[in-house]
């Protein structure tokens, strides 16, 4: 029995005549990590701002842990941990002072506050900078202060706008692990531009474009929509490419074939199945052994999320990026 903690219905936000968010509906249950994907300006941050009560929706409704955002904002805010875009924090305070302020506002008594702060600091590995003014911290540490602030009161709902932006690879890994570890107990929404992050932490992803949901599914389902799903790629010497391409064409079920030069000496040939559910890998492997093709590597593609993303979204970046 999953418990729905975030329910959103037909949420809309207009700025003047411009619809930044245009009728979003979704829900997030306890245990789910929902990823917001979408080009710049898609409306991800605006949606989060509405859920946390920073902006009032133009239309539609949302419930957080059963409370309507339109009538009980204070209760809603108590149940949410929020990392706003850019992780704003009071630069003149140290992380220690800042987290104490958050704990006080959240109603912690001294003892409990100490414990909650120590906990959040440990989870975000902030020990080394606790007494350094936030203004003088590096971007990654600032982001971690923002995350610490959001998780301090162990909220049932966690909303984080680009939590790993600006983090080094180790910290990205640490934060993803932290999110995964917390996921069981919470409903979490994150937004990200890092597609591999979706596969790494999200149980579900929404691709948002121009304020609308254009895709909704598990990372595996989204990847399956890729042209590359079940395609087979071979890495071969440039001299052998023509011969091999001919051979691949003759395989039953094979459709388009594309070629990418990797360097002067080698090429990567990808053969796409005509029907996306056909598994070509066996046939390709058999043919290549029979014909003794000199192959450097051979593998089946799961699909590429970036390609799905580009084909579904319409920003200027998406337009030219479509697969060749």
């Amino acid at each position: 029995m999953s418990q729905v903690l975030i329910e959103v219905e037909h949420l809309r936000k207009s700025f003047g005549g411009f619809r930044a968010v245009d009728g979003l509906s979704f829900s997030v249950s306890k245990g789910e990590v929902l990823g917001f994907l979408g080009p710049n300006g898609a409306g991800k941050s605006t949606t989060m701002k509405m859920l946390t009560g920073f902006l009032t929706p133009s239309a539609g409704r949302a419930r957080i842990c059963g409370a309507e955002i339109s009538d009980d904002l204070l209760e809603v805010r108590e149940n949410i941990g929020y990392l706003p875009e850019g992780a704003p924090a009071y630069g003149d305070m140290t992380p220690g002072q800042f987290l104490r302020f958050i704990a006080q506002v959240r109603g912690y008594e001294k003892q409990a506050a100490n414990k909650a702060i120590a906990d959040a600091v440990a989870k975000t590995q902030l020990q080394s900078v606790l007494d350094q003014p936030i203004d003088t911290l590096s971007k990654g540490f600032k982001r971690r202060v923002g995350i610490a602030q959001a998780i301090l009161h162990n909220p049932p709902v966690l909303i984080m706008d680009e939590p790993t932006d600006g983090l080094d690879p180790n910290q990205k890994f640490a934060v993803r692990r932290l999110i995964t570890a917390m996921a069981k107990e919470k409903a979490i929404i994150i937004s990200t531009h890092i597609l591999e992050e979706v596969e790494a932490v999200c149980t579900r992803a929404l691709i948002i474009d121009q304020g609308r949901i254009v895709a909704d599914g598990t990372p595996a389902e989204l990847i399956a929509r890729s042209r590359y799903h079940n395609a087979v790629t071979l890495e071969v010497a440039t001299g052998d490419a023509d011969l091999i391409r001919q051979g691949l064409k003759e395989i039953e079920g094979a459709g388009d074939i594309s070629e990418v030069a990797m360097n002067a000496a080698s090429k990567r040939i990808t053969v796409f199945p005509k029907d996306p559910e056909t598994l070509l890998i066996d046939d390709v492997a058999i043919v290549s052994t029979e014909k003794h093709w000199p192959i450097k590597s051979l593998y089946a593609e799961a699909g590429r999320l970036d390609e799905v993303f580009r084909s579904l979204t319409t920003s200027d970046a998406g337009e030219q990026g479509a697969v060749s």
């Binding site: 946390t52 920073f54 204070l74 805010r77 704003p88 924090a89 009071y90 958050i102 959240r106 602030q149």
Partner: peptide, 14 residues
Amino acid sequence: KSGTIELLMTLPIP
């Protein structure tokens, strides 16, 4: 200017 208003206004403070 610094964006902290978003933080402040989304905390449970009347």
